[in-house]
Simulated assay, not measured.
Amino acid sequence: MPDTTDVDGLTVGQVSARLGVTVRALHHWDEIGLARPSLRTAAGYRLYTTADLERLHRIVVYREIGLGLDRIRAVLEDSADVPGALRAQRAQVAERIERLQRLSAGLERMIDAHERGLLLTAEEQAAIFGPRWDPDWPAQARERYGDTAQWRQYAERSASRGPAEWQAVADDVAGLDRALGEAMDASVTPGSPEAHHLVERHREVFASYFPLTRQMQVCLGRMYESDPGFAAHYDGIRSGLAGWFRRLIDADARAHGIDPDTATWE
């Protein structure tokens, strides 16, 4: 570069401010020969000319659309390749935009799931969960449990489910209810292998909502018996089923070293 006292360009700091590029990046591009200032002052300070700025503008644009420095150098040195390079990069940008749009849609569903619980219309809920289902229940559950880890886990599962997936969950729950009624008819006793199998099946089915520890299952068993809504559901399957199922859960907990009387939600 010629040594000159003609201040016909911009300093590194001025170029950095004008282009929104760090001084460190400009120094790096200078060091690797990608964009060197053409002038120097008598004191040795580098100065960028108009032509230098034009080259830097191109570098900034190419870097912004995702070209690497080696690819930028190749494009700058072979002007005939510019349209092809830009078309290829445009295709990559389009793919990236599509991925980001899918990500945005997924995030929107997750936000909705955290706020609403079920991402189903009232009609879809009734068709899947039956006419006795109250579409206000998810909002009530959100108000009551929205700050818990279990609600967050439930919301993450809900975000990935549509009507078909929720129908499969509802079918599993209905199958478990039938199995409980049949087991009670068959006089399955707490602590028996059949009872342990039913309790484990309950944990597996419930995992569709969130992971359920045995201690948490004991707490649910208490609620099934004491809560009027749950008790009505289970006793509607068979009279006394809510209390019977709680005894099955308690016996299974004892078999795993858990005292049902002191179990907590953890």
Rank of each mutant, 00 (worst) to 15 (best):
226 S>W: 13
113 A>G: 01
262 T>V: 14
150 Q>L: 09
266 E>S: 10
13 G>Y: 15
45 Y>D: 05
134 D>W: 03
180 L>G: 05
82 V>E: 11
220 L>W: 12
126 A>C: 14
54 E>Y: 01
237 I>E: 11
163 P>D: 12
112 D>S: 10
124 E>G: 05
67 L>M: 13
168 A>F: 15
22 T>D: 15
77 E>L: 12
33 G>I: 07
143 E>S: 07
94 A>C: 09
218 V>E: 03
84 G>E: 12
179 A>G: 07
138 P>C: 00
148 T>A: 02
56 L>W: 06
255 A>W: 06
247 R>Q: 15
30 D>V: 08
139 A>M: 11
142 R>D: 05
250 D>V: 08
213 T>F: 10
107 L>N: 13
9 G>S: 04
129 F>Q: 05
3 D>E: 12
193 P>Q: 01
135 P>K: 03
101 Q>K: 14
243 G>T: 15
176 L>P: 00
124 E>D: 12
78 D>Q: 13
132 R>F: 02
159 A>N: 04
120 L>F: 04
102 R>D: 09
66 G>V: 09
255 A>G: 12
38 S>W: 09
155 A>K: 00
214 R>L: 15
167 Q>K: 04
230 F>N: 07
233 H>Y: 15
201 R>N: 14
91 A>G: 02
203 R>E: 04
208 S>E: 09
218 V>I: 05
75 V>P: 00
239 S>L: 07
133 W>Q: 08
151 W>D: 02
180 L>S: 03
35 A>M: 13
246 R>I: 03
165 E>M: 09
176 L>Q: 01
41 T>W: 10
183 A>W: 06
170 A>I: 04
180 L>E: 08
77 E>D: 13
38 S>G: 15
125 Q>C: 08
183 A>F: 14
111 I>N: 11
199 V>Y: 11
176 L>K: 00
8 D>Y: 09
245 F>Y: 15
234 Y>C: 06
237 I>D: 06
28 H>R: 04
87 R>V: 06
265 W>R: 02
154 Y>I: 05
89 Q>H: 07
181 G>P: 05
114 H>D: 01
44 G>Q: 03
157 R>A: 14
181 G>A: 08
96 R>H: 06
71 R>D: 10
223 M>E: 05
33 G>H: 04
81 D>T: 14
116 R>A: 06
152 R>H: 08
229 G>A: 11
29 W>C: 08
215 Q>P: 00
265 W>G: 00
183 A>G: 02
176 L>G: 01
27 H>M: 04
251 A>Y: 10
217 Q>R: 08
170 A>K: 06
237 I>G: 03
116 R>T: 03
134 D>H: 00
125 Q>A: 08
128 I>E: 07
195 A>I: 09
116 R>I: 01
102 R>V: 02
196 H>M: 13
35 A>C: 11
229 G>L: 09
248 L>Q: 12
251 A>L: 07
179 A>I: 11
119 L>Q: 10
2 P>W: 13
131 P>G: 07
79 S>C: 00
99 R>E: 06
237 I>Y: 11
